[in-house]
Amino acid sequence: MKDFGYRVAVDVAGAVAAVAAEPGARFLGGGTNLVDLMRSGVEHPDTLVDITRLPLDAVDELPDGGLRIGALVRNSDLAAHPAVRRRYPVLAQAVLSGASGQLRNMATVGGNLLQRTRCAYFYDQATACNRREPGSGCGAIGGFTRTHAILGTSPSCLATHPSDMCVALAALDAVVEVESVRGTRRVPLLDLHRLPGDTPHQETVLEPDELVTAVELPAAEVAAVSRYRKVRDRASYAFALVSVAAGLVVRDGAVVAVRLALGGVATKPWRAVEAERVLTGAPATEDSFRAAADAELATAVVQEDNGFKVELARRTIVATLHRLATEGSAA
């Protein structure tokens, strides 16, 4: 890792101005992903603008009954927040299923949104990666792909988006507030991350000088009847092979509201729009759940090692919706 300039920002305006003024400057939050990537040689900023002292660490009630989460709220504080646990249990569970207690104490909400893939070929400088080095090729294709994506892939990139939190946020219709010297704008979470296409290095719609300042969760009845199910290779402290964020409201045996998002299987936090379409208004039965899962997974593209994810995702979706229908919320 090369050395770099370090500045502590004391207000948001100063932070965004500092990064805008210097092309090689980056925001530094908890550092859990960025420092690792810098040490691995994937990232090499000239300057880090430390934003952790900015007053963006509150969780506030919104007038419509939603929540506004400051970008610097630590993951552990988010998961422990009573309103999140009660009204958005899927989010608390998703955050708690990621990383470890120590990392969650460091990692921020904003940083979690911008986590980069854990693809081994992305990390390893000795192999090709279009995401790390545009145009260099994709080492994963023809290599080890067991953890790679089946949805949203392109011939350029199969890398899975690693965040658990984002999967829950995708299900919750979260909106991301960003600020720059040009002002404030709001980006729906579902529009924040890009599909790789032939420009996998462009991971989000944010400009380099835009700072995530908050995430807003709209109020929704379905958010409270929700849970997160993560399937992985160890009982804890591992990235998802498949994860499902789901919310379900059933009345008179029929689905009146459903939210479904997938992790571990896609190149970005994946809202299961097709599945939701199939399910809405359908009877809350395993058959419907299966049909919904099949509809969502119909476009899956598999590699040599990750074909199992189609079946695993199907089963995990069905099991999670079934559990919501029978046992209700994880709150």
Binding site: G31, T32, V35, D36, T52, M106
Partner: peptide, 13 residues
């Protein structure tokens, strides 16, 4: 009082 990983923490922070 909070547990963190000192390897991913920049000391200056």
């Amino acid at each position: 009082g909070r547990r963190i990983l000192s390897c991913l923490a920049l000391a200056v922070q």
